[in-house]
Every structure is written in C-alpha cells, then in structure tokens.
C-alpha cells in the first residue's frame, strides 16, 4: 500500500519542485487522485518534504476541502438552504440516510457513495435539490430519492 502511495506522491512533489510552500497544492493534487488523504500519505509527504506531520495534519484539518476519511466514488450533496428547507429538504436527507444506512458526512461501506449537506447551492428555484457529483436533481421527492439511490448503487463499474 505504502509503495502505491509513493508512486502517486512522488510525481506530484516533483511537479512542485519539492517546495514546502506548495504544500496545499500538493495535498489538493494528492486528494484529486485518492479522493481523500489517508494518514499514511500524510506521513509520507511529511517525510519527503521534511515538514512535521503535526503541521500537515494541522493544515489538513483546517481546510474543509481536505478529507481525512475515505470518500465514495459518488458524492451526494443535499441542499439544506432556506428555500430547500421549507420545501422539505430535511425529509429528503432523512430518506437518503435511511436508504444508504449512513449519516450525513459519512461514506457507505462499499465506498460507493458519500453523503453530504450544504447550506445553499444557489439553485433555490429547483429546491429541494440533490446534487450527485456534477449533476443537479431538482424538485426531489422521496420516490425520486429511492430511484436515484437504486440507480447509483446499481451502477456497474
């Protein structure tokens, strides 16, 4: 496992000339490939760049966009903004949590789906809205949610 990570990390560090200052870009690039930042990866980067692991962990926990837990192949985002909320977004979220057997912010056991909430995506007219990866699904209902989840889970690689 560690050597796999090394194959990913080394070209990225090289891309930034091994500069310590590029740490955020490096972490972002690594995350693009792995979808999250495993502890082993942070330890390897710390060794390569000679930055204390504690400093890396500090950066990774400070920014919301870095994930220290495994992320699924598909990101399902539920909007809980005011407009979506009054149109029953919380019911949509409940349904998703029940169907996927995970809580918001978690990932399914098979690493297929990660469920998240946001506070407005600026598409209030479509509320309640669910976003799967880059696709927007507007005016969601429980029935639509069930279909969507079945579709996502049934999707073969």
């Amino acid at each position: 496992m560690a050597s796999n990570y090394l194959n990913i990390i080394e070209p990225i560090i090289k891309k930034y000339d091994g500069k310590k200052e590029a740490i955020i870009s490096i972490l972002q690039d690594v995350q693009t490939q792995l979808r999250w930042l495993p502890g082993d990866v942070l330890a390897l980067i710390s060794k390569k760049l000679k930055i204390p692991l504690s400093s890396l962990y500090s950066i990774a926990t400070f920014y919301k966009s870095f994930y220290l837990k495994p992320r699924g192949e598909n990101l399902v985002t539920v909007c809980l903004g005011t407009a979506c909320h009054v149109r029953g977004a919380s019911l949509i979220l409940d349904e998703l949590e029940r169907k996927l057997k995970i809580k918001s912010g978690e990932t399914t056991q098979d690493h297929k789906i990660t469920l998240e909430c946001v506070n407005c995506v600026g598409a209030c007219a479509l509320g309640p809205i669910v976003i799967v990866n880059d696709d927007y699904y507007g005016q969601m209902t429980k029935v639509k949610v069930d279909k969507l989840v079945d579709h996502l889970l049934g999707k073969k690689e």
């Binding site: 942070l42 504690s54 400093s55 500090s58 400070f62």
Partner: peptide, 24 residues
C-alpha cells in the same frame, strides 16, 4: 516546533473545534 524542533504538537481543526494535540 520552534525550540525543540520535534514538531509533535500542533493545533488542529478550526473555529470552535480547535484543539491541541498530536497528529492523527
């Protein structure tokens, strides 16, 4: 960090969740 150079402790998370400790 600055005197011992060991860099074991740091500040993690942010806002009201900030805490001090060891990484991971």
């Amino acid at each position: 960090h600055d005197i011992r150079g060991a860099g074991v402790l740091s500040v993690y998370f942010r806002g009201s969740e900030v805490r001090v400790g060891t990484p991971l």
